[in-house]
Design a protein around this nucleic acid. Structure first.
Length: 575
RNA sequence: AGGGAAGUAGCUCAAUCGGCAGAGCAGGUGCCUUUGGAGCACAAGGUUAAAGGUUCGAGUCCUUUCUUCCCUGCCA
């Protein structure tokens, strides 16, 4: 992150320089160019943020353009999903929604121009032969026997390709550059290939389709893009990007490459994401454990949190992996400010207030969001029989456990102080019920005599609580970098406990009419969102992210320290 | 006969013309609290991949070395 002025990075430096030299007359126009062959994920969110953010920063515009040059892999379904996700993230491209396929006619004419000036030719080598002729990383390639046909013959053959006179694989159009270049992209790259597949937008009008390299720069040029921001793997393509624009002699945007975003404890490659879906490790592209935008949305992430995250992590050329806790930090940050609080008990323990009147029900006023006074208050019913969280009671508590224990007094949030007077167990010795006494003078949660308690517990009234389902999500992978092991398949690292369904949990009746997508904080537990599977009869909540938990952290640390001392007992061999 | 790119705190990034190596997050210690949440304070964290050179002065300039990543699709 930058200190002082935010949002500065190596890209803004390049743009500032362009503005100083007047290369683009002070104009900044970017584009976000997804291929419609899959769903958007958190990495794309970073790219969208970058492209739209840069444009906004310089008072320019950003287009949404689909790079739809390979109909064999692309589908209308993806186009629609990508538009929906990009909108949800909060971006707006007005009427500047474009498709590379919009430019197929112009691209064809550009190819014809290159043929005319002798810089492109139709090659009838087979795919295998082309590969062999290309050479290797350390050996130069050699020229195709078809390389020196006349422009007239090439024109005729290219027209034959367009008209369907060749089958797939029988001919391609190639740029005539340099078969000995150290940069393999310059060894006569393919410009057009024959594809026998209907295109989602142009139908069966075309038999030939431009390659990415022949389409991208010219599409940028046609749209007046000034700064074409892409990921690092295109660094080797920039000389080709430049070559096409220079030889066609049209407006020349600047390609700039940055390191794509990676996040720990997940995978982002399309291939791996598809496997997670197809092999049934998750329920679909929008499974709340997926790093897709639709998955994150269903998990309860907010667009604001995602944007804050993107703003916070810097843009650079260093390939790195951002720790997941960074994302979660911004998520909690936003949810803390916006999510209404509510009480819910996930693992119930019955509490009977013995000195509370049998039939009395009191409505306790509860604050919806201590961070936002405008969120107001609600009423929560209190009665003789309650549920508290099982974890909030220990019969024989360790020294630093502040919650309920035999003989100890704690506060029930927004209600009363209670003291545990008796513990009821079943025949196996399992605690099944607590008997408590309340102090009527502590209504609202404070004692007139000024005495303090060390803990405040959440609770629900047993007879008023609504039963709901909770889906408790954890990281999909148990390790930071599931795809960095060359021998072990990433699926081996899938967390067997990535989803725990708890049914029923008990929630305040206030939640009765909660709608899908509404986010709440279950006090002292976690943030939850109402899932789309929710119905009027059965509410379903997805755990978005747990609250930070000092107690659990302390326990974990104590456990680790124990193991460490054991290990220490064995002297380490000297190096 | 290989080409391209990158190395600064655990992670992500700053450091103006060559001028005292700084932030956020994570981790640590306290404080506070009607969420063990939130918040606040403090401390810690570095041989700037390494070596050599230029210079009054090098993260920055030069040389060499090392490490990591990308490139041999008619994918994008």
């Amino acid at each position: 992150m930058t200190d002082g002025e935010t949002g500065r990075n190596f890209i803004t430096e390049i743009i500032d320089e362009h503005n100083e030299t007047g290369r683009f007359n002070g104009i900044v126009h970017t584009r976000f160019p997804p291929e419609p062959n899959g769903y958007l994920h958190i990495g794309h969110a970073a790219s969208i943020y970058l492209n739209f953010g840069i444009a906004e920063r310089y008072g320019g515009l950003c287009n949404l353009r689909f790079d739809d040059t390979n109909p064999a892999k692309e589908e209308q379904e993806y186009i629609e999903a990508i538009i929906e996700d990009a909108r949800w993230l909060g971006y707006d491209w007005d009427d500047r929604l474009y498709f590379a396929s919009d430019y197929f006619d112009e691209l064809y004419e550009m190819a014809v121009d290159l043929i005319r000036i002798g810089r492109a030719y139709v090659d009838e080598l087979s795919p295998d032969e082309i590969r062999t002729y290309r050479g290797t990383l350390t050996k130069p390639g050699k020229e195709s026997p078809f390389r020196n046909r006349s422009p007239e013959e090439n024109l005729r053959l290219f027209e034959k390709m367009r008209a369907g006179g060749f089958k797939e694989g029988e001919a391609v159009l190639r740029a005539k550059i340099d078969m000995t270049s150290g940069n393999i992209n310059l060894r006569d790259p393919v410009m057009y290939r024959i594809l026998d597949a209907p295109h989602p937008r142009t139908g069966d009008k075309w038999k030939i389709y431009p390659m990415y390299d022949f389409a991208h720069g010219q599409s940028d040029s046609i749209e007046g893009i000034t700064h074409s921001i892409c990921t690092l793997e295109y660094e080797d393509h920039r000389p080709l990007y430049d070559w096409y624009l220079d030889n066609i002699e049209i407006f020349h945007p600047q390609q700039i490459e940055f390191a794509r975003l990676n996040v720990s404890h997940t995978v982002l490659s399309k291939r791996k994401l598809i496997r997670l879906v197809q092999e049934g490790y998750v329920s679909g592209w929008d499974d709340p454990r997926m790093p897709t935008i639709s998955g994150l949305r269903r998990r309860g992430y907010s667009p604001e949190a995602l944007r804050e995250f993107c703003e916070n992590f810097g843009v650079g050329k260093v390939k790195g992996v951002v720790a997941l806790h960074n994302l979660e930090y911004h998520l909690r940050q936003h949810l803390n400010k916006t999510a209404n609080r509510v009480m819910a008990v996930i693992n119930p323990l019955k509490v009977v207030i013995e000195n509370y009147p049998d039939d009395l029900v009191e409505e306790m006023e509860a604050v919806n969001n201590p961070e936002d006074a405008s969120a107001g208050t609600r009423m929560a019913p209190f009665s003789k029989v309650l549920y508290i969280e099982r974890d909030d009671f220990m019969e024989d508590p360790p020294r630093k456990f502040f919650r309920l224990a035999p003989g100890r007094e704690v506060r029930l949030r927004y209600a009363y102080f209670i003291t545990c007077t008796d513990v009821i167990k079943d025949e196996d010795g399992e605690v099944i019920e607590l008997r408590c006494a309340y102090d009527a003078a502590t209504r609202g949660g404070s004692a007139p005599d000024g005495r303090r308690v060390k803990a405040t517990l959440h609770w629900v009234s047993a007879q008023h609580a609504i039963k709901a389902q909770a889906r408790l999500y954890n990281n999909l992978f148990t390790v930071e970098h599931p795809d960095s092991d060359r021998e072990v398949d990433f699926t081996e690292f899938i967390n067997p406990d990535s989803l725990t369904v708890v049914d029923p949990i008990y929630v305040e009746p206030h939640l009765q009419n909660a709608q899908a997508g509404e986010r709440f904080q279950f006090e002292r537990l976690a943030y939850f969102v109402v899932d789309q599977d929710s119905t009027a009869e059965k509410l379903v909540f997805n755990r978005t992210v747990a609250l930070r938990d000092q107690w659990r952290k302390q326990q974990k640390k104590a456990g680790k320290a124990g193991r460490k001392t054991q290990r220490k007992a064995k002297p380490a061999p000297k190096p």
